[in-house]
């Protein structure tokens, strides 16, 4: 287990290194920091001197070293637009995005497990066929169309839900959150459902497929023969083994969800990281773009590593492969 842990951590560090290298070369090639610092009236000689002072003429690796050292201290440069440290700007927007991901995850877990299990237990029933049919339609609808459809129906036609923004937020232990106000929750509903709609069909189908496979296995047949109650067989014995692959896929999908928050946040004008990122791109705010890349890269790497470790803990066969 220790060997597995070290191996995964090493891999995570290599990936983070590559991400930082890519981010740095973006920063190096995109836009000119001098143009942001000085006006047109500064002469070419002075520019060249400033360039030297700032170390912009140093070799690539020296510059990268400086960048990495600063990054490790939490300094990712100053946003051109906000005139604030880029990392702070990003982290200020992080709670809004995390809330969205949290809301969507909650909806996915609450809906996909019972629906997936049910359609595995009774594959022929009307409800199961309906769920499977709807899930393939769900996969086929791009997330921005889901968002537009929900806004059209619930905000414009029915007027039940707000169509944009995050609503009122309250501060709890420094976490500026919309989860604790009625208005904030009200604003969260449509974006969360939109974000959940991408993953929900996938998870229902995955849980159903795994569950059906598990229900065919010997130990479940043995449990039936022992006369254990169906409820216990389905939800204790079978579901446990169903969840193994679901955890792996789930971990990867959390990362994917962060990506899709960009789309969801754009449609709903949700003031999160993704929306900020697109604004930064339009303004060519390089430090902010780089900071976003590093923060999101870190989220991906950390979730994937954690998922692998959890998987290693629950599934003993992985330990063998890793400890070899």
């Amino acid at each position: 287990m220790i060997a597995f842990l070290i191996k995964r951590t090493l891999q995570a560090m290599v990936v983070m290194f590559v991400i930082s290298l890519i981010s740095f070369s973006i920063q190096d090639n995109l836009g000119d920091p001098l143009r942001e610092l000085v006006g047109v009236s500064v002469s070419e000689v002075e520019r060249e001197k400033l360039r030297d002072d700032l170390g912009l003429n140093d070799p690539f690796l020296v510059q990268y070293g400086r960048f990495a050292a600063n990054a490790l201290h939490g300094d990712l440069g100053t946003s051109y637009f906000f005139k604030e440290p880029a990392l702070d700007v990003i982290l200020k927007k992080l709670p809004a995005t995390l809330e969205l991901v949290f809301g969507a995850t909650l909806i996915i877990v609450v809906l996909s497990v019972p629906l997936g299990v049910y359609s595995a237990i009774k594959p022929g029933s009307l409800l199961s066929r309906l769920v499977m049919g709807l899930s393939i339609v769900g996969i086929s609808i791009p997330v921005f169309l889901t968002a537009i459809g929900l806004i059209y129906l619930f905000s414009i036609e029915l007027g039940w839900m707000p169509s944009y923004g995050r609503g009122e937020t309250s501060s709890l232990l420094g976490w500026d959150s919309g989860l604790f106000t009625g208005d904030g929750l009200h604003h969260l509903i449509l974006p969360s459902f939109t974000l959940a709609s991408i993953m929900l069909p996938l998870f229902i189908r995955l849980i159903r497929a795994e569950m059906m496979e598990v229900l065919q296995s010997e130990y479940v047949k043995f449990a039936w023969a022992k006369g254990i109650s169906p409820w216990r067989i389905y939800f204790v014995h079978a579901l446990k083994n169903t969840m193994l692959p679901v955890i792996t896929v789930g971990g990867v999908q959390i990362g994917t969800m962060v990506a899709y928050t960009i789309l969801t946040e754009t449609v709903f004008q949700w003031p999160g990281m993704g929306f900020l990122f697109l604004e930064a791109v339009n303004r060519v705010d390089t430090p902010l773009i780089v900071a976003y890349l590093i923060v999101v890269g870190a989220i991906f790497v950390v979730t994937n590593t954690l998922v692998d470790l959890i998987y290693g803990l629950v599934n003993p066969t992985v330990k063998l492969a890793g400890g070899k």
Partner: peptide, 26 residues
């Protein structure tokens, strides 16, 4: 396959958005 694992762990959407956004800005 290690390479494939790492690439798969980043969602396509994310990679595509970032790459295209950077090219558009450049």
């Amino acid at each position: 396959m290690r390479f494939a694992d790492v690439q798969l762990s980043f969602s396509t959407m994310m990679v595509a958005i970032v790459v295209l956004a950077v090219f558009q800005a450049a």
